[in-house]
Design a protein around this nucleic acid. Structure first.
Lengths: 209, 209
DNA sequence: TGACTTATTAAACGCTGTTCATTATATTTA
DNA sequence: TAAATATAATGAACAGCGTTTAATAAGTCA
């Protein structure tokens, strides 16, 4: 067969990505295969290579969409809850949104962190951009909490907190490695409370030194 | 060929695991394959199935050895530095040892977290045991810092800190996602200092409430 | 209607994990 | 020593994988 033109290139791309995401959601990241995606969208496996350079490329695209999802979710929530919420609450909200996201989409979330392109791991521009946007969400409330803190300290705090929350998500996502019941919220609260209390204290003192 | 008896079953197992680890170290976790391991040890691929149920099983064994390595490393360091080191320093040492380990063996470390057995992810007993041992390393200095804190709070603190350090290791290991230069040590110090300062304060107050 | 163009495929290649009948060797028995 | 037995290990097979590309069916135009 040839020349069906049922779908444009862009539509084909969209179909493939959606099918890939469904496959990942339903069967896990190791179930992702060119032939399975193709079967789901009624094309041959070779057709995928008309719109993606390879399966790696397709994964990067899925990751881009996952990242966009997360960003959209976070900015929507932040926008919505902006009504003079104390910054600590804003940070808590961000952390829990991230955690919920990782729990709701465990496989897509896993793909983001477990899909290493084999050779040199070149970080695409859009990813750097998206990560910076995520950091921005955390940075704003932190700055409110300590308006005069220097940029370096602020940057460090953003990353420390992000790593902390990510670690909670990572270890609780797959591993039933510890704690009975879902105590992830308690972990988040614990981390934020203790870290922030001292960080605010130190950061507001700092300016008078 | 048959019946060479060059190696006992136990020796064959050991050979295969070592070859697998080397392969992972040199070429990454996706390069691991039965045929490649077999070639390295001068056996056929089928021979591996005489000592492992499948490649998944082999991975679990490698992960077990990696975990043992980490545990040995930590307990050796803790033993060595025991001479009245302040507990904060002990915690810092543990964190940095963990981080160094993940940097020194990035691929074996990745295998531990990225090797999900497809179907039900059953956590083997030895892993639960090993993880508890790791938690024990953190728990001891924490208890020194707040001798009268209740068990639940202590357990929570152990896990919060572990997740935090793990998050730093995870995000800095692959991702050049942020920060120029190796600022992982700064992140560790930042996390521990702020978290612990307030945690100690709260935990010592707690007993008088 | 016939020539041209092109979207899509089917088959091929070399790889993968895994199984199992076959085989070559070691050991035991006669 | 020779024959019988037991078994360590293999090699071929199967189904599936990512990827490439010659072949083909269908749309377009003269």
């Amino acid at each position: 067969m040839a020349r069906r033109n049922d779908h444009s290139r862009e539509e084909l791309k969209e179909l493939a990505l959606t099918a890939g995401e469904q496959l990942i959601d339903e069967e896990g990241i190791h179930a992702l295969s060119a032939r399975k995606i193709a079967q789901r969208i009624g094309y041959s496996a070779g057709a995928l290579y008309l719109v993606f350079t390879n399966l790696d490329d397709l994964c990067w695209h899925i990751n881009g969409r996952t990242m966009a999802m997360l960003n959209t979710l976070l900015s929507a929530q932040i926008e919505q809850e902006k009504v003079n919420r104390p910054p600590q609450e804003a940070l808590r909200l961000i952390a829990k949104t991230y955690l919920n996201f990782s729990a709701e989409w465990p496989n897509r979330w896993a793909l983001m962190f477990e899909h290493h392109t084999p050779e040199s791991i070149i970080c695409p521009d859009w990813l750097i951009h998206a990560v910076n946007q995520l950091f921005g969400f955390v940075q704003a409330p932190l700055r409110q909490l300590a308006p005069n803190v220097n940029d370096e300290s602020l940057q460090l705090a953003v990353r420390t907190l992000w790593c902390g929350v990510h670690g909670i998500a990572a270890l609780s996502s797959r591993g039933k490695l510890f704690l009975e019941g879902d105590q992830t919220d308690a972990l988040i609260d614990n981390l934020l409370t203790h870290y922030l209390t001292n960080w605010i204290q130190e950061s507001t003192n700092e300016q008078f030194v």
